[in-house]
Design a protein around this nucleic acid. Structure first.
Lengths: 344, 344
DNA sequence: TTGAAAGCGCTAACAA
DNA sequence: TTGTTAGCGCTTTCAA
């Protein structure tokens, strides 16, 4: 009865059989030695590990995945346009997953239609879970549920459907931001929206308007950009044109706030915060550059990433766990891009 | 002779056997239908595809990898500290690989010691190739060679050892940059180095000094940062202190150049470019913000990524291909952070 | 504690 | 063109 042992001298990688033969034990014994928590005698373990080292043996994760039905692969979906300025999220997620002995399969998604292909790939590679920091339709989410692949949505959720998500609540931060603006004497406040399909920006602006309304204030004008620095120029021009007496702009994200500041200062020749106060949302690193010192509401990116990783891992271990939405509060970050209204 | 066919009604994923049974064909026929370029009759293909759709069958990439010895997985190594400002590279690489039907396994590496673990993972997951945009020692590179895993180094190479690498030659760009500085009347030029272990920054500064020397100029002072925005403050202070008559600073990267500009303008109250010209290297997006308009030498990131992907793919197909170093020229990018020397 | 044997889902000879 | 068969390298019962 022949074992299927590769001939020695083969240049391909060593298998557990090679190790077993060299150590004079069975192949299954080798397998056990590489599985934490299995019962192996010290003697056996030493023999096997010695042989393994000699052959530079490392278990083949692919073969393991096939039989154990656990790939230890996590798919992370990011959209370049949205996440371009948040590499921090991606890197933090990757670090945390690696610490947990999971590998990250990275997918970039530009449009919702790209997602379908990505979902197929996720299925084919038998990923244990998904973190989505990009678009994901309800139908796509349901498809993943159907396939019993846990998903954590980062910075998005569905109104009409339970899902696992990590979300930043900016209400408190925005309240402080706005109250300070009011204390500074601002009454003519303009809003710089993000793109229509941007959930995060929409929520931020909805909350901002609510808070303003509670203080008896309506925005003098509302303009729209697409989250990019460049898009702020036109939006600011529009604001100035439609409401020349605007003294403060609240932008849906930091990038547009920075674009607005630069348009005001460097193109229109106005002082910020002297002639116009500008605030944003996010807490971007670049917002701290001394050319901006942006007043903003910061997302606790690190803690949000941790939450996402932990939630996913738990659901990989126990697929019966019910959906959960974790909401972390954003915090007000004082900058010098906002200040007292100029009465001159 | 029983086939190992899962009982119908099983909730786990459909296999090629399930499809075969439903279509009334053999399992290998199903396999063929999903392999591009195999000879299958139209009738067969239709039957199989119909059954596959009905069962929502997708081939299991893990099982395929095991037998075909091709995982279609590419490991991409990035270092957060270095690549934080180059998400573009990572996203471009990922897009290109996905187009080529390869998946990206993302690894973040902070120190060279992290790399060893990552290399083990790469081996375990049988990645077809590696792109390294982070540290990779010669020994580590050799280990990959030994294991016949092709590697492409991004923005680095070994002096003493052949390797596949993609590199940006900044000499032409730097020459234009420097000649323009000289034409502007600058004679007291300071250098702002990157960290000692940063190969890219070192090369840039070596070339810069060479060009200056050819023009009969020695830097008045050389300072050092760690590539970050923040590190530029101290370095600039040092420059001003040691050589108060400095009129131009060339930084090893854009981030430090931007930090230098802000330190000069916003902390020290100097005019840029009036009192001091500042130039960098990279062509960072943020360098185009109107608060900076940085004069710089831009790396052709997109083309470099394409080159890396193509080189790797070729070597996955044909492991006998010899090493290759592809050098793309950086281009001078005119900004307003440099200008005529102030004679007042 | 150890070994024998089955089989994860697929591809790839080979034969028909 | 199609089906049969033998594994890929591992984990996991089940006996011993």
């Amino acid at each position: 009865m022949e074992q299927n042992v590769p001939k020695s001298g083969s240049k391909s990688r060593a298998t557990s059989y090679d190790v077993a033969r060299l150590a004079g034990v069975s192949q299954s014994a080798v397998s056990r030695c590489f599985k934490p928590g299995s019962s192996v005698s010290k003697k056996m373990r030493n023999k096997v590990m010695e042989a393994a080292k000699q052959l530079k043996y490392q278990p083949n994760a692919i073969a393991r995945s096939l039989i154990s039905r656990r790939s230890n692969l996590v798919a992370v979906l990011v959209s370049a346009r949205l996440n371009f300025y948040y590499p921090e999220v991606l890197f933090t997620l990757t670090d945390r997953f690696n610490e947990q002995n999971m590998r990250v399969l990275l997918f970039t998604v530009e449009q919702e239609s790209d997602v379908d292909d990505v979902l197929d790939q996720i299925w084919q590679y038998a990923a244990d879970g998904v973190i989505s920091a990009s678009h994901l339709s309800l139908a796509q989410h349901k498809l993943l549920e159907e396939r019993h692949i846990p998903v954590i949505m980062f910075n998005r959720y569905f109104d009409e459907h339970a899902s696992n998500s990590v979300w930043c609540d900016t209400r408190d931060g925005a309240t402080i931001l706005i109250d300070q603006l009011l204390m500074f004497g601002h009454k003519n406040i303009a809003l710089l929206h993000g793109p229509e399909d941007g959930m995060v920006g929409r929520e931020r602006m909805v909350i901002t308007k609510e808070i303003l309304k509670n203080r008896g204030i309506d925005p003098v004008v509302e303009s729209r950009g697409d989250y990019t620095y460049e898009s702020a120029s036109k939006a600011v021009q529009e604001i100035i044109e439609k409401a020349p007496h605007t003294t403060a702009i609240i932008a849906a994200n930091d990038m547009m706030a920075m674009g607005a500041i630069d348009e005001l200062r460097n193109v229109m020749g106005r002082k910020v915060p002297g002639d116009m106060s500008v605030a944003g949302f996010d807490g971007l690193g670049a917002g701290r550059f001394s050319s901006y010192e942006l007043t903003t509401v910061r997302q606790p990116i690190g803690r949000m990433s941790d939450a996402a990783v932990n939630m996913l891992l738990k659901r990989v271990e126990d697929s019966e766990l019910s959906m959960e939405k974790r909401v972390l509060a954003g915090t007000f970050l004082q900058g010098t891009s906002t200040g007292p209204v100029n009465l001159s």
